[in-house]
């Protein structure tokens, strides 16, 4: 049998934080602020644990076992150790060290998105091939219309009367669906949060 202490702690902490939303002017802030601060610190430690697990739990094991991608794992570990050692030595605010981000990370990540552009363009060729229904058709038309709006090329028709109003109205249409999606997501988050807060779901047990 698992100890009920852990869910009780989770509940009490959640209750204090939640109460702060509804009674912002009360004295709850005195206890709420340090609690949030501790949670921020713990989040950082959790991130550190995740990194250690990734590097030494996953890639180190692959390297040690000489599994299929052991060279790849070796590269990951080497890159990690080099970056970490350099960062500890120079500090993250050092302009030279920041090149790690601006000259290595950012170019790779941005290039991945650039490659995605071509992949999406190719995929859009078959946009209607998969879905021959009303939803597919509306999706198809919507993509074309909003690509046109995003490109800004409709500006050459700016002298057409009421074009501004039409464009504004068209750009408002996604609000309806997006609002429905947002409300649905908020309802889901609310229910999930309540379940976790009340202990019905306990993701911290492990």
């Amino acid at each position: 049998m698992r100890s009920p202490l852990i869910p009780i702690i989770s509940f009490i902490v959640g209750a204090i934080i939640l109460a702060g939303y509804f009674f912002p002017g009360s004295g709850l802030a005195a206890i709420r602020t340090p609690m949030l601060d501790w949670a921020v610190t713990l989040s950082g430690v959790a991130g550190l644990i995740a990194i250690i697990n990734l590097v030494f739990g996953v890639h180190w094991r692959r390297l040690r076992d000489s599994s299929k991608d052991y060279l790849f794992s070796g590269l990951v570990i080497f890159a990690f150790l080099a970056t970490f050692a350099l960062g500890i030595f120079l500090g993250p605010t050092n302009p030279d060290y920041q090149k790690v981000v601006t000259a290595i990370q950012m170019p790779i990540e941005a290039s991945l998105m650039a490659v995605l552009a071509i992949t999406l363009a190719f995929s859009s060729l078959r946009l209607l091939q998969r879905q021959h229904n009303w939803m597919g058709l509306f999706f198809f038309i919507s993509v074309i219309v909003y690509l046109l709006l995003n490109s800004g090329i409709l500006s050459f028709m700016a002298n057409i009367p009421s074009l501004q109003e039409v464009v504004s109205s068209i750009s408002l249409v996604p609000i309806a669906g997006a609002r429905g999606i947002l409300i649905g997501v908020a309802l889901g988050s609310l229910l999930t949060g309540i379940r976790i807060w009340l202990g019905s779901d306990r993701p911290y047990n492990g």
């Binding site: 190719f122 859009s124 946009l127 091939q129 198809f140 074309i144 690509l147």
Partner: peptide, 11 residues
Amino acid sequence: MVLAIMLVLIG
């Protein structure tokens, strides 16, 4: 962007 629109439309 125009090229992308054309690809989608043609496809």
